Computed example of a mutant assay.
Amino acid sequence: MISIVSFNDANGVHVELTFGENRFEMPARHVLVVLRHKGKWLLTRNSVRGIEFPGGKAEEGETIEEAAVRETIEETGVTITNLVKFAEYVVQSNVTFCKAVFTAEVVHIDESPILHETEGAEWMSDSELDACTNLSFYMKDEGMSAIRKWVDTYESQRND
């Protein structure tokens, strides 16, 4: 069963989130990587927006899977593998775009990475993430709660 969540984000922009494959008429060219490793969520600190999951835009000629791996390395120093695309969302702003949401497994953590656009990896437990006062605006909406819940369920089923 495909689930669709429709809401306005913290900036008042309409967002449609779906758990399923290619439910929107536009291809995803942006990515978001939501994963937990050893009980902690992988996040990054954006100097402007605050704490958020790693992600960004696919470059010319790059698949969204390649973009997810590259963005995670660039923003956190963490290398990932076994990507699972589990959701997409469309942000209907001045320039409407579609973002693919992935989870993955950690292969390697570079403790001294060369970073792009962020201040590096932040690892947080559920309670630390829930109590964080410096979250990016997109981390505060109902879509992110649904995404985190999906990853929780996926991990539980995978580890059984």
Rank of each mutant, 00 (worst) to 15 (best):
D160Y: 15
Y154G: 00
M26C: 05
R158W: 04
T118M: 03
T103I: 03
S136D: 14
G120F: 05
T44S: 10
I114D: 06
V106I: 09
E122G: 00
D141H: 14
W41P: 03
Y154W: 12
E105G: 09
V95D: 11
I2F: 01
V91M: 13
D130Y: 15
S136Q: 07
F24G: 05
V13H: 02
E74G: 02
K38G: 03
K57E: 06
R45D: 09
G55K: 05
N94T: 11
Y89A: 04
V91I: 14
T72I: 10
L35D: 02
E128W: 12
E62N: 04
E62D: 08
I64E: 00
D152M: 14
E122I: 15
E21Q: 14
T81L: 14
T133Y: 10
L35H: 00
M124Q: 11
A10L: 15
N8Y: 13
D152Q: 11
K140F: 00
D9Q: 11
F102D: 04
M139Y: 00
I4F: 15
H37L: 06
C98N: 08
A28P: 00
G12Y: 08
V151W: 05
T153W: 01
I64T: 07
S145M: 06
V84G: 00
F19M: 08
T81I: 11
T103Q: 01
Q157I: 02
T63E: 08
K85Y: 01
D110Q: 07
S125T: 15
M26Y: 13
E105M: 13
V5Q: 09
I64Q: 03
G12E: 06
R29E: 10
D110C: 04
F53R: 05
H37Q: 07
T63C: 02
S47E: 10
T72V: 12
Q157A: 13
A131M: 14
E25W: 02
V107A: 12
